[in-house]
Amino acid sequence: MKTIDDIVARHAGREGPLLPILHDVQAELGAVDTAAETRIAHLLNLTRAEVHGVVSFYHDFRPERDPRPVVQVCRAEACQARGVEALIPAAEAAAGGRVRIDTVYCLGLCSVGPNARIGDDLHARLDEAALTALVERA
């Protein structure tokens, strides 16, 4: 729990620190699990129910670690209009059990879709071959 104590201490004195704390925990530990929730609740003088309520509300926080690399594919309207749905079966086949393909709704690149994000890298104008290649390299 050392890491969590450090993270919470890092945000001491901020107004409404829970989201920044959860972001750091997710980034550094790969998940916000039950143990993390309990510890954060204790340090912030909240109940675990309150912390869990927040963790479970937001798509970015995950209750369990997942070691697989992640490819986020935008499947919102503008990317649908540019044909993203037709690329999904091949991408999923390429991913198999090794890569996780997540759906995101809009990366703000809506004029050059279909688009994907890996870590902080963005990729635009994807066709089936390009997306599949991204998945294979992930």
């Binding site: 107004e15 409404g16 620190p17 829970l18 989201l19 920044p20 959860l22 972001h23 309520g53 927040v54 509300f57 937001y58 798509h59 970015d60 926080f61 995101v104 709704y105």
Partner: peptide, 26 residues
């Protein structure tokens, strides 16, 4: 800067304020 956490509804101003306060974005 405060970073959101992937909830579309947090664009609604009162939901956003709850989120800034560290709550569920209701």
């Amino acid at each position: 800067v405060r970073v959101g956490a992937g909830a579309y509804v947090c664009g609604e101003e009162t939901s956003l304020l709850n989120s800034l306060e560290g709550k569920r974005g209701e």
